[in-house]
Design a protein around this nucleic acid. Structure first.
Lengths: 336, 336
DNA sequence: AACAATCTAGTAAGCGTTTGCATGAAGGAG
DNA sequence: CTCCTTCATGCAAACGCTTACTAGATTGTT
């Protein structure tokens, strides 16, 4: 079908070794020769067979994105950031679903990656997640986005700070009964989730506000979950005048739940989310925005760095700064 | 690092040929032998090297997803549908950005795919798109989702019907000045865009309503674009009492534009979108919903079908049915 | 002018599978 | 009992590159 390196070599009057070197920009090739080879290759519409070069070199020229979800906004946006970083170079992007509780995979992750990718960007999974942890132990090059690690490079926001920021904002508005819509129930907790929650408690403590356990509900980081969590909160004895949602999507769900009961966000109950989801503007949701695509891009860059500096490399943590975007979903409590 | 087929062969006391056959479930292997080989492979933690097997077999075991965007809801959801279909089998998913006007790629698509994927699912690009068309001519196995083709299999909704449905709904409510927020200006038009527009005109014509060109604006299928388009419509001489947006995201933008001018969707101007975007519920947007993830899944299945039946295969068009979801963004015109 | 260092290029041995072909064993038909 | 299939397996040649290693040609040094 397509020309082989041998044909190019023959046509250019050199050996295949020279063609290989010339086309990959390696040294020790005369510029005149290189030019001739490049032109010949172009003329013959030659493209090196990835399978062959991978087999011979041991490198795959591929990086995988390991993510529990591909359609959810945060995840999709990270992926697009990674894709962005890769369009520059010649690397392929292998998409692998990992850690989606609804879709458990039968094949061990390590096997699905072995000889398929040189490294991977891991989205929103902690380094303690079994399969990820295993990869790290096998020295498989990894970069995390959305959760911190001291074992591999990672890029994330300061989640504790994020939690404090959101909560402090509500406190500043005069709220004292501040609810929390968290993600998963504690056993399967993300780093991000725990840290944001700590930030929330921290802010309360600093202001001398006792944290009331009955003000917490879990929304699984989904809109539907947020909706249920809000319904639950509204049915509790203690009523919050404000609720901090650990993600915008859950906040959207909370809004729907409120609306269904004739309540208005920002009037009856103040709401703050986290993410800077594009829809937060339309929904008038106050949120702590994070640069998601950029985080994906940086993670990919860091990974490439790691791959190019096989030796002298050490994990680096990148903390992105967040921004509180105030909208009408957060306002002083009714009485004020 | 990992065991090779030769080691497995040696350990199992057979030739590499037998190991290969046994592990892939090919015939002409005694069940007893197969079992022994499988166990040995497992014990040695053997996984066939993809590069080697690709090189030797000529098949890549990979399917690509060709998409202009990865983070936008529609696209991300199609991708997740494809991923869903692939988790069943052993196929890899290669993500390739194509046709994103903001990020033109330097390498020809055909070269980026050659020997990298056995086939591809194309998202929302028409078969007339140059690079896609070229792939089709090269007999590269393709399946389209979101646009129709008689050259390759495709799965899409009936866009004309969708346009009619949305428009007829507005007409039924009593509207006569019905605006249109379209996508790209006609030169770079999608099949979907044209068909939905035709459906819109069709519905108008059937009801004897003249289509007024000043009632159309273009929103590039983005929220920001929809916002601008709405601003533009509101500045025109003829004022619509209802607007049909070719996508939900543009409708969201339109809502923002309206709100900024103190107008309320469904009260001042009725709005209908297309997609069934998860946020349409929160936004109270009337929309024509399509089963996006399912479409992606079906496209992937169709592609696998095509790959397995090299010979006796012919393009098949799958039309998904849509559903009008009425919410408060669409209501009778003010006067009524 | 002799010798070392640096370029340039070719030779050929892999890389780890798949698969066409050959071989022998086993079972059935006549 | 012989011949023909059908099975089960092995042999070895690809598949199309990359990359030591080798060697000659240049260039620079003293």
């Amino acid at each position: 079908m397509s020309a082989t390196i041998r044909e190019v070599a023959a046509a250019a009057g050199v050996s295949t070794a020279t063609v290989s070197r010339a086309l990959r920009g390696l040294p020790y090739v005369d510029e005149v020769t290189r030019k001739r080879v490049v032109e010949t290759a172009q003329r013959l519409d030659y493209v090196a067979s990835p399978s062959a070069s991978r087999l011979a070199s041991g490198r795959t020229g591929t990086i995988a994105v390991l993510t529990p979800y591909v359609a959810r906004w945060f995840f999709a946006t990270v992926i697009s950031g990674v894709a962005m970083a890769l369009t520059e170079g010649p690397l392929d992007l292998l998409l692998v679903e990992v850690g989606n509780p609804d879709r458990p995979s039968t094949v061990p992750l390590e096997q699905r990656l072995r000889s398929r990718a040189d490294g991977a960007v891991v989205v929103a999974l902690p380094d303690t997640y079994p399969e990820i942890s295993q990869l790290i132990e096998h020295d498989f090059p990894l970069t995390l986005v959305g959760s911190l690690s001291d074992r591999v490079s990672s890029v994330a926001i300061n989640d504790a700070e994020t939690g404090r920021l959101a909560t402090q904002h509500l406190i500043n508005l005069g709220h004292r009964e501040i609810g929390l819509i968290s993600g998963a129930t504690s056993d399967e907790s993300f780093t991000a989730q725990d840290d944001r929650t700590n930030g929330y408690h921290d802010a309360l403590t600093r202001s001398g506000i006792p944290a009331h356990p009955a003000l917490t509900a879990y929304g699984a980081f989904t809109r539907e979950g947020g909706e249920r969590a809000m319904v639950e909160l509204l049915s509790r004895e203690v009523q919050p005048t404000a609720v901090f949602c650990l993600s915008d999507e859950m906040a959207f769900g909370a809004m729907i739940a409120m609306r269904r009961q004739g309540l208005t966000p920002g009037i009856d109950i103040a709401l703050v989310g986290v993410d800077g989801h594009p829809q937060s503007e339309l929904a008038n949701l106050t949120t702590v925005a994070q640069p998601v695509a950029e985080m994906g891009r940086l993670a990919a860059v860091a990974l490439q760095d790691r791959l190019n500096n096989a030796e002298k490399y050490e994990p680096r943590q990148t903390a992105m700064s967040v921004e509180l975007v105030v909208r009408s979903s957060s306002a002083p409590p009714k009485g004020n």
